[in-house]
Design a protein around this nucleic acid. Sequence first.
RNA 1: GGGCGCGUAGCUCAAUUGGCAGAGCAAGGGACUCUUAAUCCCUAGGUUCAAGGUUCGAUUCCUUGCGCGCUCACCA
Length: 592
Amino acid sequence: MPERALPAQESLRGAEDPARPTLRARAPGERGGAGGRARRAEADRLRQPDSILYPPSPAAHQGPPDRSRERQCEFGARRRHRSIHSRLSAQTGQRGIGGRVSDQEREARRARLEALRGEGVDPFPARVGAWTPIAELRERYEPMDAERLEAESPSVAVVGRIMASRSFGKLMFLRIVEAGESIQVSAKKNQLDEATFRFIRELDVGDFVRFEGVLWRTRTDELTVDAKSVQLLAKSLRGLPEKWHGLSDLEVRYRQRYLDLIVNEDARRIAIVRSRTVSAMRRFLDARGFLEVETPVLQPLYGGATARPFVTRHNTYDQELYLRIATELYLKRLITGGLDRVYEIGHDFRNEGVSRKHNPEFTMMECYQAYADYRDIMELVESMVCEIAMEVRGTLQIEYAGEKIDLSGPWPRISLCRAIEEATGIDVLAFADADSLRAAIREKKLGPADSPTWATLVDDLFSDHVELNLIQPTFITDHPVELSPLAKRSQEDPRLVERFEPYIAAMEIGNAFSELNDPDDQRARMEEQLQNHADGDEEAHLVDEDYLRALEHAMPPTGGLGMGIDRLVMLLADAPNIREVILFPHLRPETD
RNA sequence: GGGCGCGUAGCUCAAUUGGCAGAGCAAGGGACUCUUAAUCCCUAGGUUCAAGGUUCGAUUCCUUGCGCGCUCACCA
């Protein structure tokens, strides 16, 4: 319909830069990229008024046959509006006693919806007239003072969800939000025809609308669109949560995330941090020559981590399948195949408990680099986290849970055994077996020490006495071989492997090693794991014959990394719980 | 899975030893042309998570279940 009616707007939209990083909704037909504007113009040409615009200005409706004028006439009958209210009070009166009246608000809105339909207004029209992002309007007109604005009286069109409405009888103020930006809209009775003013007055908080109008400033200097016409874009049948306290019930925030996103700015902020984190990570890896690949989620044999899987079944092949717990073994097959730098960002599924740091379904980035070892990967991790933090936060000095964290490298590298010794005084490498180590731990009263093996005792010591103190970024290196069946053995000590885990804010955000590429050693380790599995350790690895066959064809020396995206986002967004960074976290089924 | 805590109007929260279940916002009606959580008058809105139990009487005490949170265990 009407960009001709709004010359200022066309020039504004022409000035938009698709590459601009700020978030902004796109108009229909605008899908980004160079052809965006042309397609948009085309879409605008094809666009026909599908619902009523109040008032139907000649400029707005000069093109297509004007059905809306007829509708406007129909709509003109004032009685209809009064009938909404009488019908409404009749309804609520009827339902008053005994019936559930908690739907009072919904009933009122539904009545208005039906009234609109009765008047020929489509409450859910298919097309939206041209409009300008609120952010652009602010950028352009916020610098103008009231006098200049009045002199220019720019005609604009805005869209958005009504978030607040204040009525003074003959004057109304509405606040609409679009793409996270808001602007005030005014409606003045003496400057609108009666039908239009009443139409605006009957709008509900939560409705999506489009306003055409003129920019001005109120006495309090608020940039405001003085409405000249309005188009309902989508009718809301349910009210929004409380405007001042917002929505704080965690369960509702997680189950109905859309409400959380509407009313809690923080929810929106975290979603944006997450998106930017992932895209910055992709850019970082792409720039370093890594190839993004996709490997199976449904796997006949799970592996690459110690975890219990979800089990599912393929009907046609009558095949039992597992949802992947890691992408590792497939990605390393690709390294064998000559894709020398690969990465995958996707969901892993681990059939385990949930906690502040654990969701059964989570996002993992794994990357593998041929002709590299774990020290190269440490450099990669440092660079990657710093680059992402700069892009997402604009600084390397971040704060998490009240702790100031300096992400700038190089990060300290300390071997796991050394870290334990510093924290507890026990040099675990001095003990040859589990029993002697256990005795030493008990002697120092450092814990129950009831884990069965030397390696698991070491792991416990680390968890109990070191991990919580790793606030600043730190690489913990050289883990026990038993805990790392896919990592290459350390050259200095055969009990250890070339592995590291980056810790920030006491959170393990990744796991990396020099990949084990000796097929015989790998087979021996897998068979050892299989024995553990047979002994009841459901999380132990299984023997993957196809993977061993791949290793027998020779895999180059390779450094690999897995990084938990959710935890990285927690860190960058200062989110205390993994459920805050997952839009739809796993919850128990809703009862009722 | 274990321990602890929580569950009251659409939302945010009250409710005295166990004694008629309330407020603000949202909603409906009305007044109001400069509000920013507008203000003022009026109205409506409840299976107090569910099922049992104790009691003359239960939002309150007990049991069980459901859900959520924290925490421990397992893991990234």
